[in-house]
């Protein structure tokens, strides 16, 4: 398995209940996973644990045969090779699109960086925007640049935290179709976190439905979504 998450436990400092309880999941290379759940179900926490922004209490994480976390070993975020697209994109406002995309390419020489940046701009169909600053872009364009920036260093795993929540409904449908196309084209292993079942259905190869930090169901979108919608409706 390309990504192996075993028995992950996590608890916030001021909370009495753990956010994640014995969370285990295996992901194949090139697979697109969606973690579906309500607010507070612990879905975003999984992404923060995978990226290294938070440290689990116990368990282990292996990506591409590299142990990135176990009880006595914590790899810092900068060494994990896990790309992340944030909910609010987090594009650096003082850098142009070009500089944002080149930011993570520190191991390449200048020519390689330029080539990679142009490839990425082509991939997201924004070759004419490289000199723009983030504030000069629309929400959808910012999101595509955030994707290009995360993809540029060729991470082993790409994770998305509610990537469509800041887009209006029409744009949301267009972008998620586009995004699936790009991810399949690059063959990158990805995890999405969302509370929107339509997003989960449109983009995922497999859906993981979690509730109160525990996996309730895993399977193809059509298998999981019926059960998930029933539970989410019951809780609403």
């Amino acid at each position: 398995m390309f990504v192996q998450i075993k028995n992950l436990q996590y608890q916030y400092k001021n909370s009495t209940e753990p956010v994640l309880k014995d969370f285990s999941l295996s992901i194949e290379q090139g697979e697109i996973i969606t973690i579906l759940g309500e607010s507070g179900s612990g879905k975003s926490t999984i992404l923060r644990l995978l990226s290294g922004l938070e440290t689990p209490k116990s368990g282990s994480i292996t990506i591409n045969n590299h142990l990135i976390f176990s009880g006595h070993h914590v790899m810092p975020p900068e060494k994990r090779n896990v790309g992340m697209v944030f909910q609010d994109y987090a594009l650096f406002p003082h850098m142009t699109v070009e500089k944002n995309i080149k930011y993570g390419l520190k191991k390449m020489n200048r020519r390689e960086k330029q080539k990679r940046m142009e490839e990425m701009l082509e991939l997201i169909n924004m070759t004419n925007y490289k000199n723009r600053y983030p504030y000069e872009l629309s929400g959808g364009q910012q999101q595509r640049v955030a994707l290009a920036r995360a993809l540029a260093p060729a991470p082993s795993l790409l994770i998305f935290d509610e990537p469509f929540s800041n887009l209006d409904a029409n744009l949301q449908i267009k972008i998620r179709d586009e995004l699936r196309g790009i991810l399949k084209k690059t063959g990158i292993t990805s995890i999405f976190v969302t509370h929107d079942q339509a997003d989960a259905q449109a983009i995922a190869d497999r859906v993981v439905f979690i509730e109160k930090g525990v996996i309730k169901q895993v399977g193809k979108p059509e298998e999981v979504l019926g059960c998930a919608s029933l539970v989410m409706w019951a809780n609403s």
Partner: peptide, 13 residues
């Protein structure tokens, strides 16, 4: 904190 976190996931200490 997200800009800092974004930078860390892009390989910077």
């Amino acid at each position: 904190n997200t800009f800092t976190e974004a930078s860390r996931t892009l390989g910077f200490s």
